[in-house]
Amino acid sequence: MSVWLYPLEVNFGPLMPHNVWEIIIGVIVAAGVWFAFAKFISPNFEKMYQERAAQIEGGIELAEKAQGEVEALRTQYKEQLASAGGEANAIRDAARIDAAAIVENARRQADAEAARIVEQARTQIEAERAATSAELRGEVGSLATQLASKIVGEALEDDARARRTVDQFLGQLANEPQKGE
């Protein structure tokens, strides 16, 4: 065995390394394996594990995102549906109000038109009556004058009485149209 162990006078047998190089080679090999695994092998494995985890997580995330989108779309759709119903109601209400307004308007216009026509007719009638009245008054005057002259021609002596009759007549004429109104 080794010169180191002579003082001990003990034979360690197989527990004694054959030489120091075995220990040195053992250290070099173990350290080399450690170094190579840390430098060249484990990074590849860790990279693969990370990529795999990222892909799985990414897949889950994507699914969650899609789920969220679907949810949002559904909410939006429901909202739209609800708002469309409301809109229809509003349109119907508005149409009803409009219709009422239109009818009212038309009635008012018709009333106004009717009133205008009536007024026009009345004015026309009034004018015609006035014209007829004036004409008649003139004609009645001349007729009366003719009549009077005929009467006068026959009995002028009763002058005062005739004048009174004519005045009375004219006064009646003047009063009569006012009665007719």
């Binding site: 197989p14 030489n19 075995e22 220990i23 080679i25 053992g26 250290v27 090999v29 173990a30 450690w34």
Partner: peptide, 17 residues
């Protein structure tokens, strides 16, 4: 590893680690 020198070297690295 039935040669103890190599085992000692290996364990030395483990101990150091």
């Amino acid at each position: 590893w039935s040669t103890i020198g190599f085992t000692m070297g290996l364990v030395a690295v483990v101990f150091f680690y």
